[in-house]
């Protein structure tokens, strides 16, 4: 067996293993999904369950407000997560990525606030990234601390009103 043969078998073996691991991670076969995902630093194991089993049927809204030196709270301001749909967006949609990042972070916080202890989810990457982002937004007034809130609404033709899902503590700016 020469070097070229070894290379060939190695590549074919790796592709076969990768495909098998991808299938295992979709269906959590033998409860091995977490084992593989823990080592997947480069997102090589895909998640193919798009919009399933429960599709996202609500819109999330991220709002924030500041507290000044006198402990007075300002009004809530919204950071838009959804962007307006245009025909050009089918080809060129640069806002999609940052909106998706914001949306992913918000959804993760909502999910983990229901399942984890406050001490755990408040030290998660999503929570810290969101606080860092909101605290760094340009402001006209001198805020001392900032707080954010996540709300949920029910689309263009809603059948019920929006509701609050999560409100953070005040964080020093």
């Amino acid at each position: 067996m020469n070097l070229s043969d070894i290379f060939t078998y190695l590549i074919v073996g790796c592709l076969g293993f990768w495909l098998l691991a991808s299938a295992i991670c979709q269906f959590n076969i033998l409860h091995l999904e977490n084992f593989f995902r823990r080592m997947d630093y480069f997102s090589l194991l895909p998640r193919w369950s798009f919009f399933a089993p429960n599709p996202g049927v609500t819109d999330y809204h991220l709002l924030y407000r500041d507290k000044n030196q006198e402990n007075e709270c300002g009004r809530w301001r919204e950071l838009p997560i959804a962007s307006k749909r245009t025909l050009l967006g089918a080809v060129w949609n640069p806002k999609k990525r940052s909106k998706k990042a914001l949306s992913d972070a918000v959804q993760t916080i909502v999910r983990s606030s229901n399942t984890l202890k406050p001490s755990e989810f408040k030290t998660s990457i999503c929570y810290i990234a969101l606080v860092n982002f909101i605290a760094s937004l340009p402001r006209r007034t001198d805020g001392r601390a900032t707080q954010f809130m996540i709300m949920e609404s029910y689309g263009h033709y809603p059948d019920k009103g929006p509701k609050m899902l999560f409100r953070s503590e005040f964080h020093k700016i």
Binding site: F51, P55, G56, V57, D59, A82, S103, Y154
Partner: peptide, 12 residues
């Protein structure tokens, strides 16, 4: 599901 997804501002 298709209507509910298209009804959102995020993906609809």
């Amino acid at each position: 599901a298709v209507y509910l997804i298209f009804n959102t501002s995020t993906y609809g």
